[in-house]
Amino acid sequence: MTPLLAAAGLRKSYGPLEVLRGVDVDVARGECLVVIGPSGSGKSTLLRCLNLLEPISGGRIVFQGEDIAEAGRRAPEIRRRIGMVFQNFELFRHLSALDNIALAPIRVKGEDRRAARERAQHLLAKVHLPDKSDAFPDELSGGQQQRVAIARALAMEPALMLYDEPTSALDPETVGEVLQVMQELAEEGSTSIVVTHEMGFARRAADRVVFMDAGAVAHAAPAARFFSNEAPERVARFLGKIEA
């Protein structure tokens, strides 16, 4: 089966600094791919490159059969099908939760206002916040904001969701509610690439795990095997440190 998205030999440099040195990753439809690795290993940059927030320096990214790095003018049209969730939520602070979710469908997709708001309400229910539609971002906890941000990304009906350390900026007590929503989405068959330090989530929800180190994929394996005792020494050392 051809993967939904496949990056091959992906390179990214900022001046002389080489952040990605030929990364190969792919994700199949319905799969949850978790990317782990030490800080500075290029995980976030990888995600930003995959949806073209950063221009890549080399390599190929094929999404739904199209090379998106080469797409030029069609790039936005392609990127519309990739949703992204940020570490710091990045909700629009001047809009209520509901308006945050409905804005892009109305303005970018040209959806009917009533239908879009109705769908936004459904999405809020899906992330377990049915009664927060009128709340503004600064009236919500971090975990609630992140769940609104997930709903906002889902509103564009993406074929692929990218999560960039979605729980790193959260209070420990709200991490669980966000991970639960992400796990439910994964179980429903939504395709996602998740950069995270939450090994518990990786064990529960990931189909495959990729370990990045120094701008390249150091190890990749199905989740069960990844967390078994056969993992390479470097990975085991990282896991030992993070789970200690």
Partner: peptide, 27 residues
């Protein structure tokens, strides 16, 4: 307006003008 909110708008496919009109200018 944090840079990342511009990014968030970009990932939802807002054009520069739409980002300005609906996200940046109101704030």
């Amino acid at each position: 307006v944090p840079r990342a909110e511009w990014d968030a708008a970009a990932t939802m496919n807002f054009s520069l003008l739409q980002t300005l009109r609906f996200v940046v200018v109101p704030q």
